[in-house]
Nucleic acid binder design. Structure first.
Lengths: 226, 226
DNA sequence: TCGAGTTCGTGCATCCGTTCACAAGCCCTA
DNA sequence: TAGGGCTTGTGAACGGATGCACGAACTCGA
């Protein structure tokens, strides 16, 4: 299940606040899911809380973290050190407990050799060698459009088995490779679409600013649930 | 439906290649969905292809684009011009047909006043004024953690009704505000999780590199389906 | 020790989205 | 003009996920 990171975040927050036990209601509220869903997930995970009391925060955190990242820390390479690649390399969250950015690649000689986020940007020509040498299993594609498919193929051929793509175009990968695609323009397009729908549904209210006519239900949506 | 941008992309690609008609099979293949799903979506949209022939690319493109963005172009403001905000401002896809970046804000005096992607970075103190003045309806939050909730509240109070957040923490918004959250670290965590699962499922194959044992089914997943 | 209150774990109904399968309809050919 | 071959549009079935409701188990207080 892809809700586990959500649970980990909520549990960490509770742990830092000194909370030792939580009921499924509270944790579900913090993780923005139904309490029944949460209990089902946790039971499916084999974990056990105490009836009449709740879940112990620390033990549950250990269990969920063990499930989410089984001890192993995966090496990540970022390909394409443009402004987006820069941002990703500097992004704190990318240095999580179960992933570690170990290599940066770019094809532009003007970028190769510079140090970004403590790593020297390597030439994209050395991609295969670097991936094999560092045992990189996860590749992040932050290249714009054109050469993306070629770089994707080279990463896969070099042994990468999971890809996180920020490329607007579609990428073709073998079945055994996990591909996750974040299309920033689509994200915005979807928001614009909803904005348009809302304007249409509101009818002739014009350019109402403080309109609080809900009727849209819970609109929260966390991207990345597969 | 959130698949419409996908369809638009596929249709644009076909249109540029000079294709005038497509069958649902071809278009579904290009958009990575089932042909039945595609037909259902299009029929639900009220549009009509020609039986025995297929869909006309140009008319269908017009219909879908009209549906996705009803003529209106929404103004977008990016808050937080760090490396990620920089990347987003320069990102070509953000200047789509239905959205346009019209303002950049940052609280850091070292950034305010500089020109990024053709726009002068404004002081976050002027956020309310800028949003109201430019009729901004969509806000992009690219600030790291801390002040995110406060800025979020100020954006909402100023009239923003859709938010795209890159903040790792959870944001609370009123019900009538559409929130879409892209958590980059969660994306990577999910990939790492699958990588771990795969390693566990493979059993004792060790550090097999060229392992092509699929059995995972279609692993393609496009983020952003709500 | 015993009962009341609380909370986990889980079977069941419900709902959404997708897929299957087929009738309706259009083009092309004879 | 009539028939065959495709393709759309749609009703029905399937699968997965979500939410509800209830039994089981634990704690607390008398």
């Amino acid at each position: 299940m892809a809700r586990l990171p959500q649970y980990v975040r909520a549990l960490r927050a509770l742990d830092e606040r000194g909370v030792t036990t939580v009921s499924s209601e509270e944790l579900a509220l913090a993780a923005h899911v139904g309490s029944a869903t949460l209990r089902k997930d946790l039971s499916c995970l084999g974990s056990f809380g105490t009836r009449g009391v709740g879940y112990g925060v620390a033990p549950l955190l250990v269990v969920v973290e063990r499930e989410i990242g089984p001890g192993r820390c995966w090496n990540v390479a970022i390909v394409g050190i443009g402004s987006l690649g820069h941002a990703l390399a500097n992004h704190g969250g990318f240095a999580g407990a179960s992933t570690r950015v170990v290599a940066l690649f770019d094809a532009d000689p003007a970028v190769v050799g510079f140090t970004v986020a403590g790593l020297v940007v390597r030439d994209a020509a050395d991609l295969e060698a670097g991936v094999a040498e560092l045992d990189v299993r996860i590749g992040v594609l932050a290249v714009p459009g054109g050469p993306a498919q070629g770089l994707c193929d080279r990463l896969v051929a070099a042994g990468v088995t999971s890809l996180l793509s920020f490329v607007p175009d579609d990428l073709a990968v073998p079945d055994h490779v996990g591909l996750r695609s974040v299309d920033l323009s689509s994200e915005l397009a979807i928001l614009a679409y909803r904005e348009g729908r809302r304007a249409a549904d509101d009818g002739a209210t014009g350019t109402g600013g403080g309109d609080v006519s809900a009727a849209a239900g819970p609109d929260r949506s966390l991207v990345g649930i597969s």
